[in-house]
Each structure stands twice: as C-alpha cells, then as structure tokens.
C-alpha cells in the first residue's frame, strides 16, 4: 500500500508514516496531534473537519491523506500569525459566535476560505459558502455577524 511520509502543515514539514488511503482528518488528529479539526459525520456533511488545502476549504474526513501530500495544509492551530489571532477568530470572540465550540474551527476555516476568495462577500454569498457547516447549538446568526465583522476589518491578518 502506498504510504505518505511527509505533510506540509501550518508552514512546517511534518514527518509521518501513513497509508495514503487514510483520511487527512485522522492523520492530522491522531498522528500529528492537531485536534482542532473535528470528526462530526465522516461524510463531508457537517464541516467540523474543515481545513485549508492551498487556501481552499476541504472536508478532511473525506480527503485521503495521499491527495494532500505536497500541498500547503492550514489547520486552525496554524491560522493566526504567530501568537496572534486571525481577524475572523477575533470576530468570533467579539460576536460570541459559539456555545460548545465544537464546530468553531471548521466554521472559521470555511469563513477564512470565503474571505480569501472574496474579501467583501454579500449576505447570500456568505450563506452559500457556509451552508455545508453545521452548528447544532444554533449560533448561526452570530457566525454570520462574525464573518461580516471580519470582512469589514479586511478579513486577512
């Protein structure tokens, strides 16, 4: 079976030894102890496992680690510039856009991917981009507020 021996995660090369067919999510969480990406459904339906692959939001639970090799992976742990928060992380705190917080890393990374594509998205575009992320606590209106807040501040660190 093909194996993957290196990933580029949060700007660093990380040595791993994983079968290429394993999910990116389980390698990040279990092999690299980057537990910010969460398991929620295992079928790419809830967005809790969202990470950035070359700046695009992907569902890491349905992404074989083999397809992520050689690409720049960003997880929630590596989002903010060293020691600081990304504007969208700050906006989540400002808007109080979480309860249990389990969906939060995936929400933030989906929002960041959107803001990378379009720094000033309209309401409908935000909803379209975020439709695949579930917050069971129902903080949706606050998440929209947070994304608008971050967009207003330029949306990038």
């Amino acid at each position: 079976m093909a194996r993957v021996t290196e990933l580029q995660v949060n700007g660093a090369r990380r040595r791993i030894d994983a079968e290429a067919s394993r999910s990116l999510l389980s390698v990040l969480r279990d092999d690299l102890d980057l537990t910010g990406a969460k398991y929620g459904c295992g079928e790419g339906q809830c967005g809790a496992c969202t990470v950035l692959l070359e700046g695009q939001a992907v569902r890491s639970c349905v992404t074989p680690v083999g397809t992520a090799a050689g690409k720049a992976i960003t997880t929630i742990e590596g989002l903010g510039p060293a020691g600081r928060l990304h504007p969208l992380q700050e906006a989540f705190l400002e808007a109080g856009a979480l309860q249990c917080g389990y969906c939060t890393p995936g929400m933030i990374l989906s929002g960041v991917a959107l803001l990378l594509r379009n720094p000033a998205p309209g309401e409908a575009e935000i909803v379209r981009a975020m439709q695949g992320n579930v917050c069971r606590c129902g903080t949706y209106p606050r998440i929209l507020t947070a994304i608008r807040l971050a967009a207003k501040k330029g949306g990038r660190p």
């Binding site: 398991y39 929630i76 742990e77 903010g80 705190l93 917080g101």
Partner: peptide, 12 residues
C-alpha cells in the same frame, strides 16, 4: 480563545 484556536481538548 482556546475554542477559536483549537487549543481546547474535547473528550474526543
């Protein structure tokens, strides 16, 4: 801050 940075450790 621990929740928006992924630092918080849930049971899983």
């Amino acid at each position: 801050v621990d929740f928006v940075t992924g630092r918080h450790r849930y049971p899983s």
